[in-house]
């Protein structure tokens, strides 16, 4: 759960100083990258490592541009995103349903909790060979594994969220004549939403982490994981680094543009978590 919290904190510190001293802020944020980039260049030019293994930033940039223009990089990225979203959608649908069920019904909780608790502590990637054996190399294994692994945090958080819905909300709603169905729709779901969103966010982060690795193992024809893994064979370190940059950008964008937006529209506006 801390993942989500910490990323929020970063943005807050960055946001807070916005306004008059915009330029200084930008300079301050760029400065560390200039330093690190400089060190990188020095190492690259010094020849401590072979140039093929440690390309200069210009080479990486050139490779990035070239791979983008030829459409290779976008193709890889799109394939990866489709897998990610399919897997995550599966996890979201099943995870929220199971988690909410567990929170609402004692029986469902008793049945699912042992299964979930046994499956969760095993690192997701450890299931990969098993899935590859059962479902074969390729897309199906990759998507199913991503869905399976990212379902765990979603289940756990939805479950806790429903349990954490304040008794006083339930009572107030009942006093105002809400039946079970409307209690669920108007009170339980919005009340549990901060947790459910956290779960989805963690699930997506997990899905993203695992997918890159799965693409390396599952021998899918396209995908960013496959790109960087394949680049290793031909010592295309520049292509590899370009791939890693895209991976970082997508990860950042998912967090910034998807989840923070949803949160700002709902739980932040309601004051259920501080922004």
């Amino acid at each position: 759960m801390q993942d989500a919290v910490t990323t929020i904190m970063v943005d807050r510190t960055l946001d807070r100083s916005q306004g008059g001293e915009r330029i200084r802020l930008i300079a301050r944020n760029v400065f560390p990258f200039v330093v690190v980039g400089g060190i990188w260049e020095i190492i690259a030019w010094s020849g401590i490592f072979p140039r093929r293994l440690f390309p200069t930033l210009e080479e990486v940039a050139a490779s990035f541009v070239q791979l983008t223009i030829t459409g290779i990089l976008p193709h890889h990225a799109i394939e990866t995103l489709i897998r990610l979203l399919t897997g995550f959608a599966l996890a979201g649908i099943f995870g929220v349903t199971i988690g909410v069920l567990m929170g609402r019904s004692r029986r469902a909780e008793d049945i699912f909790l042992p299964l979930v608790s046994i499956g969760a502590p095993i690192p997701g990637l450890a299931y990969a060979p098993l899935f590859l054996l059962w479902f074969g190399l390729g897309n199906i294994s990759a998507v199913l594994l991503v869905g399976f692994v990212s379902a765990f945090p979603i289940i756990f958080n939805s479950w806790t969220g429903v349990k954490a819905v304040k008794e006083i909300w339930v009572r107030s709603a009942q006093a105002m004549g809400a039946d079970d169905r409307r209690l669920f729709r108007h009170v339980i779901l919005p009340g549990a939403l901060p947790y459910i969103l956290t779960g989805l966010r963690l699930g997506l982060a997990q899905a993203w982490r695992i997918l890159v690795a799965v693409e390396m193992l599952a021998a899918v024809p396209w995908g960013l994981g496959w790109l960087i893994f394949g680049a290793r064979k031909f010592l295309n370190t520049d292509a590899m680094l370009a791939g890693i940059v895209v991976i970082a950008l997508i990860g950042l964008a998912l967090e910034k543009f998807v989840f923070q937006k949803i949160e700002n529209y709902t739980v932040v506006r309601w004051g259920m978590i501080s922004s």
Partner: peptide, 25 residues
């Protein structure tokens, strides 16, 4: 019913939304 706890209001509804709840039901 009115409770002591301020948290009795639904945070996801505005003041108006909270007051309309019973009527909605």
């Amino acid at each position: 019913v009115v409770f002591q706890d301020f948290a009795q209001l639904f945070p996801w509804r505005t003041a108006l939304g909270n007051v309309t709840f019973g009527l909605e039901m």
